[in-house]
Write a protein that binds this DNA or RNA. Sequence first.
DNA 1: GTAACACCTGGAGTTGACTCCAAGTCAAGG
DNA 2: CCTTGACTTGGAGTCAACTCCAGGTGTTAC
Lengths: 127, 127
Amino acid sequence: MKIQEVSEKFGISTDTLRYYERVGLIPSVTRTGSGIRDYSELDIRRVEFVKCMRGASLPIEVLIEYMALVQQGDATIETRKEILREQRDQLIARMAEMQKTLDILNHKIQVYESKILEKEKKIKIEE
Amino acid sequence: MKIQEVSEKFGISTDTLRYYERVGLIPSVTRTGSGIRDYSELDIRRVEFVKCMRGASLPIEVLIEYMALVQQGDATIETRKEILREQRDQLIARMAEMQKTLDILNHKIQVYESKILEKEKKIKIEE
DNA sequence: GTAACACCTGGAGTTGACTCCAAGTCAAGG
DNA sequence: CCTTGACTTGGAGTCAACTCCAGGTGTTAC
């Protein structure tokens, strides 16, 4: 699969895909003889993983570290697990914050809605 | 309440508090005669609101727009409600993405955990 | 009254994560 | 063979959101 297709499939620009590779987020993608990227199944699974993690704002640095450990094989499993656990905990914390914000937003929207209703009533009475 | 105390109360640096004021996120804080910030109850409620919204990553630009509308009074209620509704919807979408990521993280952690267990078993058998 | 310290301002610098660009290479159609 | 258009690289530029700094003023403890 060439870069253009991967870009469309995941909604990630080709520039970003190349950038991810450059910084080590996706270890060197397979190439054709002449050096053009030709994403393998594995490469695509990696892109998907990164897209998903970035979608939840896991920092690129952490993902780079994680990917490097994956490359190093089974000896790093314990460390990798720790990284994922920490990221998961932070994610849970962020989601809790967001839930609080969501509640406040919903509350404010409700207040606005009833204010708008009041205004409409007043107009009706004045008519 | 002076800036230092507000900073500690909310865990926002004084630089950030001044920055928020500068860009219009918190309309001009009350001052002492000599020009030193002295946050009123209202100012503090505003800081709290902004902190909460920023905690859920609502963009500063949107908050600036919202705050400007609040300043303009009741005529802008409808617009404000729309802004909040849109932000709420985006927040819900982001939380859904994060939930997916969380599920994957949990799954991966489980897989790692069972791999570690297997390794331990092997060691026991070899003993 | 003076030293030490918190506060002020405008503006420059930093960080993370892209995003764009120039200059060059390759592959397919006519 | 030559053009057209997608691909390559390294490096520079951009953007949001801070964060830091220099140079100046205010305020409190001794």
